[in-house]
Amino acid sequence: DTFTFTLDGIEVRLHGASEELIKTIEELLKRDIRWEELEKWIREWEK
């Protein structure tokens, strides 16, 4: 599955994202998160 969203005018596609990761990103997007914050968060998630 591919999860697609737009952040700061950039279309982002995550391939093979888990349901948990998708739900977490959706929550972060509701908080009007900035790209830099999401990028940092995703790097931490990957560890």
Rank of each mutant, 00 (worst) to 15 (best):
D32F: 07
D1L: 15
T2N: 08
I22V: 10
W45F: 09
E11C: 12
E36R: 09
E46S: 04
E11R: 03
A17D: 02
V12H: 14
L38R: 00
L21D: 14
E26F: 08
H15G: 06
T4N: 07
D1G: 13
R43S: 13
I10P: 00
L38H: 00
L7Q: 02
K23R: 14
S18T: 15
W45K: 01
E39D: 09
D1K: 15
T24Y: 09
T6H: 10
G9D: 08
L21T: 11
G9F: 05
W45A: 06
R31D: 09
S18K: 05
L38F: 15
E37M: 08
E36V: 14
L14Y: 03
A17W: 09
E37T: 10
I22Q: 07
L7P: 00
E39P: 05
T6C: 11
H15S: 12
K23G: 09
E39S: 08
T6M: 12
L29N: 01
T2I: 12
T24W: 11
E46H: 11
F5N: 01
S18R: 04
E36Q: 12
D1R: 14
T24C: 08
L29E: 01
R31E: 06
G9N: 06
D8T: 02
L14Q: 00
D1I: 14
H15R: 05
R13S: 15
F5D: 00
R31M: 11
T4P: 02
S18Y: 03
V12C: 08
S18W: 03
G9H: 03
F5S: 01
L29F: 04
I42A: 01
E11I: 10
I42M: 06
E19R: 11
I42G: 00
T4D: 08
L14K: 00
R34P: 06
W35P: 04
E36G: 08
T2M: 09
E11G: 02
I33G: 04
A17M: 09
K40Q: 13
E26C: 04
S18N: 10
F5M: 02
I42V: 07
K23Y: 07
E19S: 12
E20S: 09
L29D: 01
K47L: 15
E11N: 05
W41G: 02
V12S: 01
W41F: 15
E27H: 08
E20N: 10
T2D: 15
H15C: 13
I22H: 02
L29M: 06
D32K: 00
T4F: 09
D32Q: 10
D8P: 01
D32R: 00
E44A: 05
E27W: 08
R31I: 08
I42P: 00
L28E: 02
L28N: 02
W35E: 01
L28C: 10
K23L: 10
D32L: 05
G16Y: 08
W35R: 04
E39A: 06
T6V: 13
E46C: 08
I25K: 00
I42D: 00
F3S: 01
L7K: 04
W41K: 09
E20A: 14
E37I: 07
E27I: 12
G16A: 08
I25C: 02
W41Q: 07
W45V: 05
L38Y: 11
F5C: 03
T24S: 15
D8K: 02
F3M: 03
W41R: 07
I42N: 00
I25W: 01
E20Y: 11
D32T: 06
R43V: 11
E36I: 12
L14V: 12
R13G: 05
V12K: 01
L38D: 00
S18I: 04
E20C: 06
D8Y: 03
L28M: 15
G16T: 05
I33N: 03
I25P: 00
S18V: 04
L14A: 01
K40T: 10
K47W: 12
L21N: 05
L21K: 03
W35C: 03
L7S: 03
D8I: 02
G16M: 08
E20P: 06
T6K: 06
R31S: 13
D32H: 12
L21Y: 05
